[in-house]
Amino acid sequence: MSPKSRLYNLVMAWKNKPFRELRDIEQPYWESPRDQEEFAHPTPKNSVNEFVYRGIDFEPIFNRSGSALKGVLFRPLLTASSSEVLRFCMEGIDAIHYWQCSNRIIPLILPINVSDLRIASCVDGLCDLILNSRLPIGLINIGFTNHQAIDNELSAAITKLRRLGVLFHALQFDGNPNTIKLISQFQFEAVHFDASHIRETNSSASAQLIDQIHLFKKWSCKTYFSNVTFVRDNELAYQLGIDYCYGSLMLSPVNRHQIIHIQDSRIGKALFSIQTSK
Rank of each mutant, 00 (worst) to 15 (best):
Q148Y: 10
A149H: 14
D124W: 09
G66I: 05
A149T: 12
I109P: 02
I119S: 04
D94N: 14
N146E: 11
G143A: 02
R54D: 14
I96D: 03
D124N: 14
S115R: 07
G125P: 03
H147N: 12
A149Q: 14
L135C: 06
P136G: 05
N141C: 15
I56N: 07
V114P: 00
N113V: 07
R87E: 15
L139P: 02
L126P: 02
L131F: 07
L110H: 03
C122W: 00
E50D: 10
I119C: 04
F144M: 09
G71V: 01
I105N: 11
C127V: 11
L117N: 01
G92L: 00
P76Y: 10
M90G: 15
T79I: 11
I61H: 00
L129Y: 02
S121V: 08
S82V: 12
V114S: 06
D57R: 01
G143C: 01
I137K: 12
L110F: 04
R64Q: 14
P136D: 04
A68C: 15
R87Y: 15
G143Q: 00
R64K: 10
V114T: 09
I96R: 04
L69H: 08
S82Q: 13
V85K: 00
E91P: 09
L69D: 04
F74Q: 01
L126N: 02
I140C: 08
I109F: 03
I105A: 08
N113D: 10
C101T: 14
L86A: 09
D94R: 15
R87G: 15
N113P: 07
D116E: 05
A95G: 10
R54I: 15
A68T: 15
R75N: 10
P76T: 08
F88Q: 06
I142M: 03
C127A: 13
G138E: 06
N113Q: 14
K70W: 13
G66S: 08
S121M: 06
R134K: 14
R134S: 12
E59A: 10
A95S: 11
P136M: 03
V52S: 13
Q148D: 13
C101E: 15
Q100D: 12
S133T: 05
A80G: 04
I140A: 07
N113F: 09
V72Q: 02
F88L: 09
D57E: 08
D124M: 14
V85N: 01
H97D: 09
F51V: 14
V85C: 04
L135N: 05
V123R: 00
L73Y: 04
D57C: 06
S121H: 07
F58R: 01
R75M: 12
R87P: 07
L139W: 01
L73P: 03
E84T: 10
L131P: 07
E91W: 08
V123Y: 00
N113I: 06
T79R: 13
G143V: 00
G55P: 02
C127Y: 01
